[in-house]
């Protein structure tokens, strides 16, 4: 147990250092983007039809929120704020805390992506096992080809395709948003039903986009394990088929857990294209908008969230592996 605790402590220390480095780099990069929040706002307002004078006045209100001092001082201020878990004020949404914006966007990203990823993982794993067992038959070929096709198709093409089919040709699902705006948000059946209806398209896209990768990875993993000596040994000892199947499945699924943990970390980045296509107000869309608006603090906050999520996912993946693979466990005892 102490070994695991020590390992975890090491991971956390490294993770913290990593976050620090990434935050610094992203701070510098964000500040190096041409343009600034005031200019971006001004241009946007003019584009919307305001006269230059009006726009200038409206933009001036923003000035109070602009970071002051040299870049170095700004950096010090920003990091000091981070220590207090204060990500600052948004520059594009006046009066809004970055943390609040991130939190509300996160709910629209995490749940759909989580459901989509787990769905594609479950289906992909099962189909992968079948594709491996039936690899010399037609069914196996069909499964493998379906995997390659979906894996090769870019997410946004898939999203556009689904959108075209299910919202235009066959209008079953709404084109965008999170729920029917005429409904009262709350814990009532109608609203929740509407939430599910609106989430179906994004979730389906996530699921289909992930499925190809899982089925291919699982198939190759199962084929490898099936060729392992211990499977034949189990057969020659007369083990029951069910037990042999479990031997295969457990050994084959092992490497996929790491990928799963990592892809769950990536989910905080949101799926920019998919959220854009379905105008789903998640983290991806928030990040996209913050970049257009040159909203320094919001961008920084979004990047920080993604970094932290990925670092944590890495740690979870590693600890998970330690828990399920005895070889890793004893490897660390030795070191």
């Amino acid at each position: 147990m102490t070994v695991i605790a020590r390992r975890l402590a090491g991971h956390l220390a490294r993770g913290f250092a990593m976050i620090l480095v990434v935050t610094t780099i992203s701070f510098v990069i964000i500040r190096s983007i041409p343009g600034d929040p005031m200019r971006a706002r001004y241009e946007k307002l003019v584009e919307q039809g305001m006269s230059p004078d009006q726009a200038e006045r409206a933009t001036a209100a923003l000035y109070g929120f602009m970071p002051k001092g040299t870049l170095w001082e700004q950096y010090a201020d920003y990091m000091r704020g981070l220590l207090h878990l204060d990500l600052g004020q948004s520059l594009s949404v006046p009066g809004a805390e970055v943390t609040t914006l991130l939190a509300s966007a996160a709910t629209w990203t995490i749940l759909p992506v989580l459901v989509g990823t787990l769905l594609s993982f479950a289906v992909g794993i099962i189909m992968g096992v079948y594709a491996a067992i039936k690899r010399s038959s037609k069914l196996g070929d069909v499964l493998a080809v379906s995997g390659s096709l979906l894996h090769g198709l870019p997410q946004y093409v898939l999203a556009l395709l689904l959108s075209a089919v299910f919202t235009t040709l066959l209008p079953i699902f709404p084109t965008g948003g999170t729920a029917d705006v005429t409904l009262e948000p709350g814990l009532n059946a109608a609203y929740i039903g509407s939430l599910i209806q609106y989430a179906t398209m994004p979730v389906l896209t996530y699921a289909l986009a992930g499925y190809g990768g899982w089925i291919l990875a699982m198939k190759s993993s199962v084929v490898t394990v099936l060729g392992d000596d211990f499977i034949m040994a189990a057969e020659l000892r007369g083990l029951k088929r069910g037990l042999i199947f479990r031997y295969v499945a457990r050994n084959a699924i092992l490497p996929l857990f790491t990928i799963l943990a990592l892809s769950l970390g990536l989910l905080f980045g949101g799926a920019i294209f998919i959220e854009r296509i379905f105008t789903y107000p998640g983290l991806g869309l928030l990040l996209l908008n913050s970049i257009t608006d040159r909203d320094y603090t919001l961008m920084g906050g979004a990047f920080l969230l993604i970094t932290v999520a990925i670092v944590i996912a890495n740690i979870v993946a590693d600890m998970l592996y330690t828990a399920i693979d005895p070889r890793v466990r004893s490897g660390q005892e030795a070191s």
Partner: peptide, 10 residues
């Protein structure tokens, strides 16, 4: 040299 045991189980 062949691994005739399941590596995940005792």
């Amino acid at each position: 040299a062949q691994n005739s045991l399941n590596p995940l189980k005792t």
